[in-house]
Nucleic acid binder design. Sequence first.
DNA 1: TATTGTTATACTCTATAACTATA
DNA 2: TATAGTTATAGAGTATAACAATA
Lengths: 177, 177
Amino acid sequence: MAHQPRRTLRRAPKADETLTRPRKRPATQGTDEQRPPISLDGLTSLAGYLIRQAQLWVFEDFNGTLAPLDIRPAQYSILVVVRDNPGLSQMALSEVLGISRSGIIPPLDELQSRGLLERLPTSDRRTHALHLTAAGTALLALADSLVQQHERRLMDKVGSRGHQQLLQVLEVFGRNR
Amino acid sequence: MAHQPRRTLRRAPKADETLTRPRKRPATQGTDEQRPPISLDGLTSLAGYLIRQAQLWVFEDFNGTLAPLDIRPAQYSILVVVRDNPGLSQMALSEVLGISRSGIIPPLDELQSRGLLERLPTSDRRTHALHLTAAGTALLALADSLVQQHERRLMDKVGSRGHQQLLQVLEVFGRNR
DNA sequence: TATTGTTATACTCTATAACTATA
DNA sequence: TATAGTTATAGAGTATAACAATA
């Protein structure tokens, strides 16, 4: 029904990262006894396992880096796609991001309540046209520079050559899912 | 206190995958009108985004492949680590898997209730020694062959060379987090 | 009838804190 | 006091189903 843009104030997200984060091994537990090494070879030989571990690192580092702006990965991806495709509908957005059309609503509500994004009416009164506000555009510019820092840290982790290889090899996962 | 191994029956996990899965674009919505292409360049140039998308594919394919055995990624990783490190404690397991010591309990309970894994008492009566049962060893062997199918599908996706590069480049994320 | 956005609900995963028993 | 395992609780993320407005 193309409701009024809602003003719902959503739960303030924890300023810090809330996503999976690795254990900070508990200070080599008390005495610095050496513990028997645990073999992970059965897992580390699987590319899928390594991808999962890399993704956990990415989210952790991303969240830490963008904590000052209180932007999580999903929010960042929404802001980028809306900036690059102004006026797109919620359906189109949820589709390219691989989220259900109901799942896109909480992050959109939050971004809107923070004044970063707006839902404008269209000729088809069922749909909303998504646009960034001036504040959203400004904040995204800041976020972009932090994301570049994050990306550089990833490059430090895997090497410049490794980073290039990742972009090439994983490109197949980037196209429209 | 090294409780009795619990018999708690845990909620039957949905036999199919329950993790994030991509939208199956709704049949090009009704009429096959061509929709304006949506630019994702702002995201696909980020290695972190591609890693995230790859990881979603991995979980989806993994879950689909291992659905006949009703084994999810976390359960598989537990079975592998316990097989390769028999007798390790829950603390050690949760540490190498990057899960909190309370978070390891639900999957362990489930595996134990399914007769795949047991918690044996040790001289330190606070700790449990984790071991696979015969059934667990047998099921893991089946799982391994399915995981190899999954890994082959990943190789089909990124190419043989790309697969090798992934193992090399991401190896840094595999070591003990 | 089909589609968009929304609400309601449920489930998974993970986190933290408090508790028990052991050391 | 410190540690291992457990319980209780909470939060984020995502899923499905049903609904109203609109096409």
